[in-house]
Amino acid sequence: MTTLVPVTFKGGVYRHDEIMDLIDDLGGYIVQKHVMAQDVVLQSFVPRDDIDLIREIAKPLAGTVTEAPLVGTEIAVVSPSLEIHHLPHTACDIAEYLRRSGAKTNMVGLARGFGKRIANLNDEERDVINEHDLAVYALGNFEECIQRKFPALRQGIHVPIVVTGAPDRDALIRIIDPPVEGYVGGVGRIMHRFKRPEELAKLDELVDEVSRTLDARRDTLAKDPLSVFPPRLMAIIEDRIHEVSMLTHPTPVTAQMEGLRVKLPYDSYADDVRSLPVTEGVTVGDIADVTPSRMRNYILIRIKPFSETRILV
């Protein structure tokens, strides 16, 4: 079985369709395509053995292929509020940096996430965060505040959490109980853009921490694989439901580690998605739960594991 690895292709618009065809022909999947003026960025999964071939073909087009550990994941960046105290720096810089590593990030600005005594999380925020593969909490400067408010902010969250805050990593590990999956110290409330080498090093540390956490999740998934690889289901949906191509979202179908978010109205399209054939005799409804998302009126698809369906597409 070929192993698909997440990579980012960066190149020019000119003849980039050849690269897209090549990835398709090799049995890879393009998860996200960004066209920015003259540049194209493709977040994709390609067979490990064929990376060199893609590099070679991309060379005359001045394209580069780099490994991107977070392709195919959707990450929530949780900010205690949308006030000027927390945005744009820290939260946006973190989100931007994670995107560069291939992740699809969503910013979740809490309605009442500030203040150590009054901080809380409402049910909508909790459900939206739980729809992601991982949540990065961008917290503040004081140990005391993080210790007091974090239990409220994590209540009901069952996805892996990576916490950032100004106290160093050891202090974060000491004050957060029960432990979370990742910690990055030395990143608190910062009122300027991350640009100094030590600040960028912190963001690299965060990407490492996030990829380590997600790799652990991937290892668990490998033991009981999903009935279908999410990017494959994504390709099928994009192919068969033509309304997807008419959406103006940057990612009309967003790939997650264990499912997909389809940005079509649930009421009108859920049945079409459920009855969509994946392969002969198998429909999406057989191998996945198609549920309404708490994010607007989107559709959330959770792919069931092989152990549950006894189907592997």
Partner: peptide, 19 residues
């Protein structure tokens, strides 16, 4: 009383006043 917070607030105040 929190030394990490003290450093952070020095930077925050400097950034805000400058901005």
């Amino acid at each position: 009383p929190d030394p990490v917070g003290k450093d952070a607030y020095e930077r925050i105040a400097a950034d805000v006043l400058q901005d």
